[in-house]
Computed example of a mutant assay.
Amino acid sequence: MTHTHAQHQDHHHDADGAQAEILELDAEVLAEHTADIIRWLPLHGDPRRFVDLASGTGAGTFALLDQFPEAHVTAVDASPGHLRRLGEKACARGVDGQVRTVLANLDDATWPDLGTPDLVWASGSMHHMADPGHALRSVHDLLAPGGLCVVVEMAGLPRFLPATAPADRPGLEDRLHAAGDRLHARHLPHRGADWGPMLTAAGFTVEGELLVDVDVTAAGNAAIGQYALGVLRRVRGAVAAELDPDDLVALDRLLDVDGPHSLLRRDDLAVRTRRSVWAARRT
């Protein structure tokens, strides 16, 4: 029994580590877009206290600190591994005195004390909440009067391949996404939602909405190949049973880093997606 528990722990750490790698690559590849989103925000004055909800390894935390170097950020996540990485990065950047990590499950009825922030940043996290309405009301209650709640969501996973790829199974990525969308419709019903009405229902005044089209080519950016590899490995893990056998073979050829058809050998990759942003004020 102990052996099984240890195996489970190892598997959990492996999965946690793999997800952390994807989060770090995601942060690197989308850094410019994230900075643009923060510059767009309808801020009042100079906010100093931030909460990064479901912070992962700190993409939002460090993007906020880059633009507000005097600020303090409370990073909240349910993964000890992600928070450990975030803390290590804060130390490496010399900002550990400005970053506090809080381990918490945001689906819990009550949240730990997160202070009274001027801004709450929720990127890619709201659609994972079991009860997003409750989460948004909790955010509303903890914000300082006049504070801002920022919800950033991506239109599903990014696409990396041209529609004509791979040559023997063109349109493979479309079919992978369709299979993933069917699964997500069952497990993540709020993915792709319009958060405006939900923010309004939670007591906020929505002050701005932004659509950001992302199209980053891989030319000279090795991170994009690694990012594509990490994301498509996770997609394979989720949708393998739903795929046509020939599609699975074609996908495995792309994921074989030592093979001639490896994603890492392609020069036509890009990161294409859309990010939607809602900025809502506690009035």
Rank of each mutant, 00 (worst) to 15 (best):
residue 7 Q to V: 15
residue 270 A to D: 07
residue 122 A to Y: 00
residue 264 L to S: 10
residue 14 D to C: 13
residue 167 A to C: 07
residue 74 T to C: 12
residue 24 E to Q: 13
residue 26 D to N: 15
residue 259 G to Q: 14
residue 21 E to W: 09
residue 117 P to E: 04
residue 161 L to M: 13
residue 226 Q to N: 10
residue 259 G to E: 08
residue 85 R to G: 05
residue 147 G to E: 00
residue 121 W to L: 05
residue 56 G to F: 00
residue 99 V to N: 03
residue 212 V to H: 02
residue 32 E to A: 15
residue 103 L to A: 13
residue 153 E to N: 12
residue 14 D to G: 10
residue 137 R to I: 06
residue 134 H to Y: 11
residue 55 S to C: 11
residue 5 H to Y: 10
residue 56 G to V: 06
residue 10 D to S: 13
residue 34 T to C: 11
residue 83 L to H: 01
residue 268 D to V: 06
residue 264 L to W: 06
residue 236 R to H: 15
residue 61 T to L: 03
residue 141 D to C: 12
residue 156 G to S: 08
residue 68 F to Y: 05
residue 138 S to W: 02
residue 23 L to C: 08
residue 51 V to G: 01
residue 149 C to N: 05
residue 158 P to N: 08
residue 213 D to N: 14
residue 37 I to E: 04
residue 75 A to V: 05
residue 141 D to A: 15
residue 28 E to F: 09
residue 94 G to F: 06
residue 238 A to I: 13
residue 214 V to Q: 01
residue 172 L to N: 03
residue 280 A to I: 04
residue 139 V to P: 02
residue 52 D to C: 04
residue 53 L to I: 12
residue 182 R to P: 04
residue 170 P to F: 03
residue 236 R to V: 08
residue 117 P to I: 03
residue 207 E to V: 12
residue 110 T to K: 11
residue 190 H to D: 14
residue 165 A to Y: 02
residue 260 P to L: 10
residue 147 G to S: 03
residue 168 D to I: 08
residue 238 A to T: 13
residue 189 P to I: 07
residue 101 T to Q: 02
residue 145 P to C: 09
residue 121 W to R: 02
residue 50 F to D: 01
residue 97 G to Q: 12
residue 147 G to Q: 02
residue 52 D to F: 04
residue 32 E to T: 15
residue 248 L to C: 07
residue 248 L to F: 09
residue 51 V to F: 01
residue 9 Q to S: 12
residue 148 L to G: 01
residue 267 D to S: 15
